[in-house]
């Protein structure tokens, strides 16, 4: 058992937790939270992979792409939040109704 392994396994669990939330929760703000949790779980997994040789000098390449990933996740979160607020203004609901595309007309 090493530090890297602990956090990689933590990352795998977070992916599971986030996935569960993304599937089961209807409120869109919760699904946005779940999306961010899955994302950081994946980053921990990648970071754990980069630290396997000991925490002294972890691989900088995963670190750099994780920073990029964090910024990209924020960008998508910002759009999702703005879209959610607009959706609530338009429909009064923070959830999506059941799937039936042809009704959308």
């Amino acid at each position: 058992m090493s530090t890297a392994l602990v956090y990689a396994l933590c990352g795998a669990s977070l992916v599971g937790v986030g996935l569960y939330g993304f599937i089961t929760r209807a409120h869109l703000l919760r699904r946005i939270l779940a999306f961010n949790i899955i994302g950081s779980g994946i980053f921990l997994l990648l970071g754990g992979a980069g630290s396997r040789q000991g925490a002294v000098s972890p691989d900088p390449v995963p670190q750099a792409v994780i920073i990029t990933g964090i910024v990209v996740a924020l960008s998508l979160t910002a759009l999702a939040v703005a879209l959610l607020v607009r959706l609530v203004e338009d429909t009064g609901r923070a959830t999506l109704p059941g799937e039936d595309a042809s009704r959308d007309a």
Binding site: V15, F22, L28, R31, F35, I38, G39, I42, L45, G69, L76, L79, A80, L83, L84, R86, L87, D90, T91, L96, P97, D104
Partner: peptide
């Protein structure tokens, strides 16, 4: 907005699984 939200949710989950 509703169609866009649905699209965004599919796209987000898709890119996360890809990233995994």
């Amino acid at each position: 907005t509703e169609a866009a939200m649905r699209y965004l949710l599919f796209a987000l989950s898709g890119s996360l699984v890809f990233l995994l």
